[in-house]
Every structure is written in structure tokens, then in C-alpha cells.
Nucleic acid binder design. Structure first.
Lengths: 222, 222
DNA sequence: CCTATTTTTGACCAGCTGGTTAAACTTATT
DNA sequence: AATAAGTTTAACCAGCTGGTCAAAAATAGG
């Protein structure tokens, strides 16, 4: 019965995903998950001992999914600009198919900060930055961007694609008043965000804050 | 006893704010709010009939606070660039003092989309955009920015300041690995984000997507 | 066909949840 | 000092929560 086994276990997992995604850990009820899967509540505890076990299984899969989306950006055959364009196209498309993911992850991490560990397990984002930086050192030097600015730049890039989904409800309401659809906003956004970032980085002189200029000077002295 | 009245009512409200802000509506317990205020649980119901009444009171005050921060941007004496610099300085400073606000609002709105109405009550953001746009038509024309791009631009501006707070836990963890503090990141961000946006908008030609170029052409024909 | 094993169920439970109530306490008014 | 009004409390409650358990149903192996 490994066959049927897997069927029910999958059914449970999918139902749990569904319910956790739109009610959160605190708001989700084991009864509702069971009902959604069309099975007895005790069966949940047979496959996943506790609510927390079940939640963790869902959370870890979702965390993995969202983070794996950052890896393809390391393809060395693309120029920096193309990489940014590629990222927004892929990332926003992915989030269009999983629109509740950002809100879910952000909320559960805020609610229980220890979960950051599980979220980032196996993904060394620092290293990702450094690799991107060294891969494109020439272009970035032209833009007068040094490694110390990577946190600001990387966080800005991610903000532009993830935030609209985290604030989806609000955005939808505002756009509705103007007769715009959230989805066409997102379609435009794939190109807009890329252009926005590329433009922001190009000719970056005016971007440098005082402290950053100071640290740049200090760097040059060595 | 209006004196003592107000004292307890305020104490309740503050405790409720505290507890709701870090546990959310579903995670907060009336007992915990009472304990935090050092009073009997029944007293909560004496001043605020139900949990939902109490929550709404908190939510509406917080929503008001966060939205009021967008108004000063209408000061007509500032140039567009200065306005952006001013906005990030003020807005990030405000969020530094209320770091849990974005996560709270976003989560509660996602959890219960009807709350958007309460959030946006009395604030016509569309109108804010239009006013900004018409106040700075000359500068924006130079940048080749037309009204149809306002949703993309405004949402980008907000993303850059709000998202780091919504994802605070994750950012902190990543920065920690690099020996950076979230707070110094935020201090830098006030200037960085402003420069980033100003640079992105300046010389905006490359920003235009195909569809937007088409709609611009169509616009010129008239 | 019988038996051993695994899967599924219904009934149940202790503890917690938001909410109520009647009585005690405090304060203001006369 | 007496009384009326507002404030605070302890005790209580029905309903829900995650979780258990013994028994029933389904399956596999011989």
C-alpha cells in the first residue's frame, strides 16, 4: 500500500499547504486541514505527529522553493544587465504562480525568528553576492560600485519584486480604483524593474553617500 | 474618575498594541494582554467589548500612523529630487521607531482583505500620485516620465523603504553573517534609496518597455 | 481462507479560548 | 454619612483546540 500511502500523505500535505498558506500557523486548524483532505483528523497525526511537524514540512518546502529561484542568476554566460532582466522575468513569473508565498514566509519568520535558520539552510546568500560581484567586477567597476554596496543593491533588487506580492491586497485595492489590474501591473513590472535597477546603477556617482565615499577613499589609500 | 479611567484604558490599549504587534490577531491572547496591563481579563471586555473591537482600535491607529507619513511629501516648496530624499529620510526614521509596523499591517491585510478599506480610509493615494505628478510635471517631462508610469514608480519607491522592515528577520540574519548591523544598513539606506530612485528616473529612456513605448506613441498622436 | 500488519475511523479528553456575571471595591455627589 | 454610579475582580462557562486511543476496516502474505 505504499501507493495509497503516498496518495493520502500527499493529499494531507497539499491540504496543509493550502490551509497554512492562507491562515498561517496560528490561524490554521487541524480540523480544517483534515476536512480539506477529506479524511479523519486522527490521520493527520498518524502521518505527521503534531501540528508543528506538519507545519515545518510545509514551511521548509516553501522556503526551499523560493530560495532556489535565486540560483540561476549565477549563470556566467550572461552580462550583468541581462542577469537583472532575466531575474525579474523569472522571479516575478514564479511569484505570479505562488502569490501567497512571500506573505506566508515573511509573516512566519517575523512571528518566530528562529525559523530564519530553516529558511536559509543550505543557501549561502553572502557567497551568492560575492560570486555575482566577482563575476561582473569589470562592469561594476565602470559603474563605480564596490563590494561594500552589495547589501544595499541586492536588497533593493529583491524589494522591487517581492514587496508587491507581500502587499498584494493593498496594491490590488489601489489599482482597482484606477481601473488597473494587478496582473498587468506585474507584467509591466518584469521589464520596468529591470530597467529601473540598471538605470539606477549606471552612472552611480551621485548615489554614494558621505560615509560610503569616505570608506571608498580609505580603501584607495591602501 | 475620568483620570483613572483614561489611565487604565490607555494601559489596555498600549498592552494590546504590544501583544497584537508581535503575535498578530490570531496569535494574541486576551489573557496575555490583560497580564501585560496588570489587570483582570474581564476589564478588557468592560472597555472594549470583544477581542475584535480591541484589535480594530489598534489596527486603525497603526494604519493611520503609517499612512499619515506620506502626506508631507506634498509640500510644494521642494523639488522632486529633494522630495524623494526627504521621504526616505523621514520614512525610514519613522519605521526605525516602529519596526514591527509593516509586518503587522501586511499580515493582517493578507489574512483579512476587507481590512484594506479600514487601512485606506480617508487617504486617497491615487490623488496623492496625481498631485505629485502635476506638481513636478516639468521635471518629470524632462525625465520622459508620463502619468501612466506612476504606479510602477510609486510602488518602487515604497518597496525600497518598507520591504527591509517587512523582511527584517531575514535581513538581520544575512547581515549578521557579514558582520553588518541592520541599523547601520538602515542609516545608509536613507541616502542610498534616494540616490537609487533619482538615478533610475533620470534619463529614463531605457526604462520604457515596449508596451509603454506603444502607449506613449499613441498618446502623442492625439 | 486465515492471520498479521498497516491504515482509517469515531469517540473521547484535558486544557485553553473569548466572553459573562454577580458581587466587591472605589469614587463622586448629596 | 449615606447613597448612587462607575470600576475592578474572582469564579465560572460553553465551545473549540490539538492530541490520544482502542477498535474497525483494508491490505498483504502465506
Amino acid at each position: 500500500m505504499t501507493e495509497k500511502d503516498r496518495q493520502t500523505e500527499e493529499k494531507i500535505f497539499e491540504s496543509a499547504t493550502e490551509v497554512f498558506l492562507d491562515r498561517g500557523m496560528d490561524g490554521a486548524r487541524m480540523r480544517d486541514i483534515a476536512a480539506h483532505a477529506g479524511i479523519n483528523k486522527a490521520l493527520l497525526h498518524y502521518y505527521y505527529r503534531t501540528k508543528e511537524h506538519l507545519f515545518n514540512a510545509v514551511f521548509e518546502l516553501m522556503a526551499g522553493r523560493i530560495l532556489k529561484k535565486f540560483a540561476p542568476v549565477l549563470d556566467p554566460s550572461m552580462s550583468f544587465d541581462d542577469k537583472i532582466r532575466f531575474f525579474y522575468r523569472e522571479h516575478i513569473s514564479f511569484l505570479q504562480e505562488n502569490p501567497r508565498l512571500p506573505g506566508f514566509i515573511l509573516n512566519e519568520v517575523n512571528r518566530n525568528p528562529e525559523r530564519v535558520r530553516k529558511l536559509l539552510a543550505g543557501f549561502d546568500l553572502n557567497n551568492l553576492w560575492l560570486q555575482i560581484y566577482s563575476q561582473h567586477k569589470k562592469e561594476l567597476d565602470e559603474y563605480k560600485i564596490d563590494a561594500s554596496m552589495m547589501p544595499q543593491i541586492m536588497s533593493s533588487i529583491v524589494s522591487l519584486s517581492v514587496f508587491p506580492f507581500a502587499a498584494r491586497g493593498i496594491f490590488e485595492a489601489i489599482f482597482e480604483k484606477q481601473g488597473l489590474s494587478f496582473n498587468s501591473y506585474l507584467e509591466d513590472r518584469k521589464e520596468f524593474a529591470a530597467g529601473f535597477v540598471i538605470n539606477a546603477l549606471r552612472n552611480n556617482n551621485t548615489l554614494l553617500s558621505n560615509t560610503e565615499i569616505k570608506s571608498q577613499r580609505a580603501h584607495k589609500k591602501r
